[in-house]
Design a protein around this nucleic acid. Sequence first.
DNA 1: ATACACCTTAACGCTGCGTCAAGGTCAAAT
DNA 2: ATTTGACCTTGACGCAGCGTTAAGGTGTAT
Lengths: 254, 254
Amino acid sequence: MEYTVQRLAQLAGVSARTLRYYDEIGLLKPARINSSGYRIYAQKEIERLQQILFYREMGVGLEKISDIVGSPDFSQVKALREHREQLLKKRKQLDVLIANVDKTLAWTKGGISMTDKEKFEGFKQQMLDDNEEKYGQEIRTKYGDEQVNKSYQKIKNMTEEQFAEVEKLGARVLATLEAAFATGDPAGELAQQTADFHRQWLSYYWDSYTKEAHAGVAQMYVDDERFTAYYDKIQPGAAAFLRDAVFIYTGVNK
Amino acid sequence: MEYTVQRLAQLAGVSARTLRYYDEIGLLKPARINSSGYRIYAQKEIERLQQILFYREMGVGLEKISDIVGSPDFSQVKALREHREQLLKKRKQLDVLIANVDKTLAWTKGGISMTDKEKFEGFKQQMLDDNEEKYGQEIRTKYGDEQVNKSYQKIKNMTEEQFAEVEKLGARVLATLEAAFATGDPAGELAQQTADFHRQWLSYYWDSYTKEAHAGVAQMYVDDERFTAYYDKIQPGAAAFLRDAVFIYTGVNK
DNA sequence: ATACACCTTAACGCTGCGTCAAGGTCAAAT
DNA sequence: ATTTGACCTTGACGCAGCGTTAAGGTGTAT
């Protein structure tokens, strides 16, 4: 039995346009073209189409389908396994989105304004691990186990996916700091924006924010050469500049 | 403080192109244009951008964001709630896809060929409910509670989303039947294809398929006027034609 | 002969930008 | 004064996977 586009389309439950498109991109060519230029499909094409649609239902892209269909079975299995991974990833992302929406909704109910930009950002696990590995011992003895544990605990509760967000916020602090440093004015708007970003960034690691603690950390950036080095890699003096900006921002002066 | 595109882009962690695009579609217009034609953004625009980015992270489309931002708070909450529903839907779809991939993988392992097209289709809950409502009592007494319960149980185990699939397969049976009926030959390829689709469709409701049962159902389509009416709405005689095709397909003759 | 259903190619539209291309502007360095 | 280099501008194409006119040829039933 032979089929025209529309007939095959009905059979397969797709549109005629789709079949023409598949022809166009070489994914499914008709068996032959009749004297009037009509596309004619036969049994073989039906089977190929069904394979194509199968993978399409799975959410595989047409190009990958093209690779898969007509390749040996074990390749197809491998492709499916890989595709499965991608689907899982997508679902995780969705979970994060949903969690964020829920959080926002909850906060709005609690009277916390939607304009609070803290909601934007997330966390990183690896950052944590790296941190613990490098400085864990020292920080713990210096600032007390309980504090550190609480902070770590808070972070552990977040999902991995939110990592990119915190990194972004961190990068934003650096970028803004650089621009602000160029102005030379720690009381200027750019510098104050930097301090605000820094506060937001910090808030991810702290259970509660206080101006005094914020100012304390800023001072530490100057006192502890590791932090100084981190910020000064932008420009020598950037750490001190940030501290000054934060002092003004918090209104705290040591 | 005022910002050019690039500066604002850095600050917000997006590309300059994005900001130009947002300007183009009217989502975020710069505060002013300077004498050289440069876009200049101010504090107000920063805040608006942050709101925009917030919703964007949530996966909301730009057009909807345009509606949301700048509307009263309660509207925003409503929008978020609706968006949450959509996210949940998407996740459900993903779950179905993943389940399908898993099933296919399992079947392939079990030696069942990937060319079996049964994997395509799903089920419907509502179809069930409708069915139970209309004919439940009668069917139960006629064919026995146990059978019906088993069938129903099987269907209940599937997810709602798979519904569209079974509907599609059902439609495919009808469409193919119509084309086959036009040929007038119940032994022809089209008619045999119809019988095959019908077998696939049945397989969703039955734990195990047998040729005899298939042929029995086909005969029932002629004997029970409700079914006859259903298939004959295509063309008078279609039910009988389908029965003949299935008899040939199964090799069973009553 | 005429209507009507089906076929063809061509081409724009949708989302959310990335990515050249071709050219103007601005501050600093020569 | 000019040259560099980093920034800015407006166009416009490209991406996936078709949906959707548009303009016109074909097939068949009346």
